[in-house]
Structures are given as C-alpha cells and as structure tokens.
Deep mutational scan, measured.
Amino acid sequence: MTFKLIINGKTLKGETTTEAVDAATAEKVFKQYFNDNGIDGEWTYDDATKTFTITE
C-alpha cells in the first residue's frame, strides 16, 4: 500500500510517499524521516486516505 506524508513545517514543506505493508510500518518510516530532517510537530493520520500530516 502507498502512504502519503504531507509536511507543513516552518522550514520544510512538501509531500512524499512510501510503500508499506500497513500504517504502523509507514509511521516508523515517516518518523525516521522527521528525525533525519529535524522536523518536530503535531501529526495526524487519516486512514481513509492513508495520509499522515505533520505540522510544526
């Protein structure tokens, strides 16, 4: 399955996707992406659209 990440950061904005077997696996991938890029904020997940959103 394809999961999308929408980034609404102070310095970084955009979208990316990842292929994962489930939302929990995608969450781990995206959290690592947050850490690697110094993004910290509030994030949500919409199961209907398989979209994670992080807002700094």
Rank of each mutant, 00 (worst) to 15 (best):
M1S: 09
M1D: 08
M1C: 11
M1T: 12
M1W: 13
T2G: 03
T2H: 07
T2K: 09
F3L: 01
F3H: 01
F3N: 01
K4R: 13
L5E: 01
L5Y: 02
L5V: 09
L5M: 05
I6H: 04
I6W: 03
I6L: 05
I6C: 05
I7Q: 02
I7F: 13
I7C: 11
I7Y: 10
I7A: 02
G9N: 05
G9A: 08
G9E: 02
G9Y: 14
K10M: 11
K10D: 06
K10E: 07
T11R: 06
T11A: 09
L12N: 08
L12C: 15
L12M: 11
L12A: 08
L12T: 09
L12Y: 14
K13C: 15
K13V: 10
K13D: 04
G14A: 13
E15N: 05
E15P: 06
T16Q: 12
T16Y: 15
T16K: 13
T16P: 02
T17M: 09
T18A: 07
T18V: 14
T18N: 03
E19G: 03
E19L: 13
E19Q: 14
E19W: 15
A20K: 02
A20P: 01
V21K: 13
V21E: 08
V21A: 12
V21G: 06
V21N: 09
V21P: 14
D22S: 05
A23R: 11
A23F: 09
A24S: 09
A24L: 09
A24E: 11
A24D: 07
T25Q: 12
T25N: 07
T25R: 05
T25F: 07
T25L: 04
A26H: 00
A26L: 02
A26M: 02
E27K: 07
E27M: 13
E27W: 14
K28C: 08
K28L: 11
V29H: 11
V29A: 07
V29T: 08
V29R: 09
F30L: 03
F30S: 00
F30H: 00
K31W: 06
K31Y: 05
Q32M: 12
Q32D: 08
Y33C: 11
Y33W: 15
F34K: 12
F34N: 13
F34D: 01
N35C: 11
N35M: 14
N35S: 13
D36W: 10
I39A: 05
I39N: 04
D40T: 14
D40I: 14
D40R: 13
G41N: 06
G41Y: 15
G41M: 11
G41Q: 05
G41C: 08
E42Q: 10
E42D: 11
E42Y: 12
E42F: 11
W43M: 12
W43L: 14
T44E: 08
T44W: 07
Y45F: 05
Y45G: 00
D46T: 03
D46Q: 03
D46L: 02
D47C: 05
D47F: 06
A48Q: 10
T49L: 06
T49W: 03
T49M: 05
T49E: 05
K50W: 05
T51F: 01
T51H: 01
F52W: 05
F52D: 00
F52T: 00
T53S: 04
T53I: 07
I54P: 00
I54L: 12
I54A: 05
I54K: 02
T55E: 06
T55P: 01
T55G: 04
E56F: 14
